Amino acid sequence: MDKKLLEVLACPVSHGQLFFHSQTNELFCPASGLAYPIDAGIPVLLEAQARPLTEEEKQA
């Protein structure tokens, strides 16, 4: 994930900062509790496509 792109992206739900998780290839937002997939290098920032973070992921 390009670091400069990550700096300008925001969660569409909470408008909070997104963080890249390399193991799952997702962007996650602790504020909204959602993880957004990255498809072919493009973040899919749609709430309907996001998955809820687990309790463990929220605390990490």
Results as ranks from 00 to 15, higher is better:
A50I: 08
G41F: 14
L18P: 12
R51S: 14
I42H: 00
E56T: 07
I38K: 07
A50V: 09
L45S: 12
K58F: 09
A60L: 15
S32R: 02
G16S: 10
E7S: 12
P12D: 07
S22W: 00
S32V: 00
L53A: 02
Q49F: 01
G16V: 02
L9G: 07
L45P: 06
A50N: 07
K58L: 15
A31Y: 03
L45W: 05
V44Q: 13
G16I: 00
H15V: 09
E57Q: 13
I42L: 06
L5C: 05
A31P: 02
P12G: 11
Q23K: 11
L5A: 04
Q23G: 06
V8N: 03
F20V: 02
S22P: 11
E26Q: 15
A60Q: 15
T54K: 05
E26D: 14
Y36K: 05
Q17I: 05
E55R: 10
P43M: 07
K4T: 06
K58W: 13
Q49C: 01
E55Y: 10
A10L: 14
G33S: 06
L18Y: 14
V13K: 08
L9R: 03
E55I: 15
A50P: 04
L46A: 10
K3S: 14
A40D: 14
F19L: 10
E55N: 10
T54E: 13
C11A: 01
Q17W: 00
M1W: 06
G33Q: 04
A35N: 03
L27F: 02
H15D: 08
G16T: 01
I38S: 04
Q59Y: 06
V8H: 03
G41I: 12
H21S: 10
A50R: 04
L27R: 00
Q17G: 01
S22N: 10
P37Q: 14
L27P: 01
L46P: 01
D2H: 11
I42T: 07
D39V: 15
M1Y: 11
M1G: 14
D39H: 15
F28E: 11
P37A: 11
E55D: 15
T24D: 15
E47F: 01
E7K: 08
M1Q: 12
E26H: 14
A31L: 08
P12M: 00
E47G: 08
C29S: 13
E55T: 12
P43T: 08
S22L: 02
F20G: 00
P37N: 12
A40Y: 03
P12Q: 05
S14Q: 06
Q17R: 05
I38T: 08
T24C: 13
V44I: 15
E55M: 09
V44A: 15
I42G: 01
L45Q: 08
E7G: 06
A60W: 11
A10Q: 12
